[in-house]
């Protein structure tokens, strides 16, 4: 009897609904239900014995959650679209190249083939890479429950350590990403273990086209605080890259508050965070076609890796 009562938490019951209404009804009525997207995070939690759920609601049989739609403003990406598809789909690469680039940096191709866009966000980990891009792009999350649909900007989605804006009874149904027009961008992911490990520090930078002599420099930071962080700062459009880096680092500095762990102490991560910020800004600023680095024909990737090498050198010297 006791064993039976304890059973639900040991092995959660799997539900495999085939309509969205049914998903919402299950999430609304079950006591401790959890959505099962790609399962790459859930399965690890189960193996570690730290999954506290009575029921799992599998989304894989629900139609219409795995589409990528072109909208007036950009893309609407279904929650069950795989990370690998975000990386490789020609439409995503054309409309939101920064998102495609960053999704391609998550884990390894097998995890990316299985993990879903919705599950990645809802996982809520402070080290996730994709939110860095989604925040600077101004994306918003579509949430649904039996009560209806609401939208939350990705910038407001991460509310606390491992905690998101997803309310009980809700699921992520899509992410809307505005088209990346007229802006240039860069991404840097620095790992202290293997290259495909979770980042020790990551940063996405996006520079808008000039308005009245100013560009907006937006930064998304991963692994550098208890939630993914967003900051932005205006930079004169004729500024050189060194000024853009300085302004960006000044804006990012105050929100960097790293959690020490096996990937590095707080101090190490703070310094590495500023290196990631610099690398991302150099890659983004280099492709604005602005002053200094506007020389045509140099690719962002090349500039990014040059910048990374140089800033690493500087960083080691300053130790």
């Amino acid at each position: 009897m006791t064993a039976e009562m304890a059973a639900p938490l040991g092995a959660p019951t799997l539900h495999r609904p085939d309509t969205l209404d049914e998903v919402c009804a299950l999430l609304g009525s079950l006591d401790q239900a959890m959505v099962y997207g790609g399962g790459t995070a859930v399965q690890i939690l189960i193996k570690q014995g730290v999954l506290f759920a009575s029921d799992l609601v599998d989304l894989s049989l629900v139609p219409d959650l795995d589409g990528i739609e072109r909208t007036d403003t950009g893309l609407r990406v279904g929650a069950m679209v795989s990370l690998r598809r975000m990386e490789t789909d020609p439409v995503v690469r054309r409309i939101v190249p920064l998102a495609a680039q960053v999704y391609g940096h998550v884990a390894n191709p097998r995890v990316r083939n299985t993990a879903s866009v919705g599950g990645n966000l809802a996982h809520g980990d402070y080290r996730l890479d994709p939110p860095t891009a989604l925040m600077v792009l101004g994306a918003r999350v579509e949430l649904r429950s039996s009560a209806g649909v609401r939208h939350v900007p990705v910038r407001d989605f991460f509310v606390g350590f491992q905690e998101t804006a997803v309310a009980p009874g809700e699921l992520v149904t899509a992410v809307e990403i505005p088209a990346q027009t007229g802006s240039s961008s860069g991404f840097a992911k620095l790992s202290s273990q293997s290259v495909n490990d979770w980042p020790c520090a990551s940063a996405a930078a996006l520079v808008t086209s000039p308005v009245q002599g100013q560009r907006e420099l937006r930064l998304g930071l991963g692994a550098l605080a208890e939630v993914p962080k967003y900051v932005s700062v205006d930079v004169p459009s004729d500024a050189g890259v060194a000024d853009a880096v300085r302004l960006g680092q000044e804006a990012a500095g105050p929100v960097i508050d790293p959690i020490p762990d096996i990937r590095g102490g707080a101090d190490f991560k703070r310094r590495l965070g500023l290196v990631a910020v610099e690398d991302a800004i150099r890659a983004a600023w280099g492709s604005t076609g602005g002053t200094e680095t506007g020389a045509a024909g140099r690719s962002t990737g090349k500039e990014g890796s040059d910048a990374r090498r140089n800033s690493r050198r500087r960083w080691w010297r300053s130790r």
Partner: peptide
Amino acid sequence: VGACGACTVLAEDHSVSSCLARAV
């Protein structure tokens, strides 16, 4: 935990870590 690839299978030509995949 999805990190080594020893358990790789191709599912419709896509690589999957079978250690993190439910058979159903």
